[in-house]
Amino acid sequence: MATLEIDRVRKAYGTMEVLKEVSISIGSGEFLVLLGPSGCGKSTLLNMIAGLEGITDGQIRIDGDVVNDLSPKDRDIAMVFQSYALYPTMTVRQNIEFGMKIRGIPAVERDKSIREAAALLQMEHLLDRRPSQLSGGQRQRVAMGRAIVRNPKLFLFDEPLSNLDAKLRVDMRTEIKRLHQRLGTTIVYVTHDQIEAMTLASRVAVMKDGIVQHLDDPQVVYDRPANVYVARFVGSPAMNIIPGRLVDGAEGLELEMDEPKGGTSRISGAAVSEAARRRYAGRPVLVGIRPEGFSLAEPGQQAIQAAIEVVEPTGPDTLAMFTMGGVEVIARLAPRSAQAGQMASLAVETAKVVLFDPQTEIRID
């Protein structure tokens, strides 16, 4: 286990700046996920931690030691790639053993490490097979086993599940989570899949254009996103972002949203600090509501009237689409509780409503 400090790290290719003063501190045994779309800089950052890319400015420290100028082999890290990078002519045993052999580790120790890694990953029965005889998930286990036997300070995963089908991805997520719980190692994991980030991470760093937009516990990132970009990127379906206003109503401060055919929808009881109330009262805001923040209203409960346009049954719930504040909104409702072409009375869980400044798109606290 090791600590990792990324201190004001920059990466530029000529005039093009790929990473812009990224700072992240990772505790020993932590599982950090770098999350973002293609081109946001997450894989570049991982390669810089590994020593595969140079650093334009800033420092990377492992257990307090600056590693900027150390070669990859001297950083005591192990990396698992999107491509399995297995030797096709070698058996699973030989693939796992190869790195240890190169480092001159005695045969007895090599055999012990292989058996322990194979037991941990439940692949003892695969040791004498070649990669061509394995499924995608099994090949990824071998790649993980090859990393485990190194007993490194730090594990780096670069989109290891992207080549797997949906069911295998779910299975391998569980394997990686189980591996982290058993070994307690420090892991940095790159993905564009927000479900992977939410299920695996102890902390998530959401990135865009070489900048960390939000770094926090996955549930905090989901419930209280730092800005509109994070709100829309994390969550499936994404958080609804609805133009509205903060107004004084009969029951105190209310959120008011214009409807395309005239009239307004109002939500009272949104949690707003006194400072935000003074600053934004009577002004436009962006109202963030997760799909599960809507529910069918009980009798006597404050509700908005929604004309359901489309429904998408998913099995455990139904996604209902309607227009609110002039934009399309998605509500996650109970199965068969809504039908296209009908009106529905929907309640909003105001405690989970998040407000954003319409100019900066930063969350209003």
Rank of each mutant, 00 (worst) to 15 (best):
I26A: 05
G315A: 12
N47S: 05
K208R: 15
M16L: 15
G64P: 01
D111R: 10
E361W: 08
Q342D: 14
G36T: 02
L45A: 03
L168F: 10
A307M: 11
T199I: 12
R8Q: 15
A197G: 08
T44N: 02
F31M: 08
S273V: 11
R266N: 04
S236N: 14
V204I: 15
E254G: 03
L286M: 11
V272K: 00
Q213K: 07
E175N: 09
L333R: 03
K177C: 14
I211T: 15
I304K: 03
S38N: 03
A276I: 07
Q138T: 14
S202A: 02
M123H: 13
R139H: 13
G288W: 01
G137V: 13
D317Q: 10
L46E: 07
A307S: 12
V188Y: 05
L253W: 10
L164K: 07
M172S: 08
E196V: 06
L70S: 10
R8M: 14
A201Y: 06
M207V: 06
D217T: 14
T56L: 01
P316Q: 09
I308T: 06
N163T: 13
I77S: 05
V80H: 01
T186N: 08
Y84D: 11
R129Q: 14
R61N: 02
R278G: 13
A78Q: 04
D216E: 14
V188R: 00
T264K: 07
R61M: 01
V247L: 12
Q342F: 11
E124C: 05
T44A: 02
R363V: 13
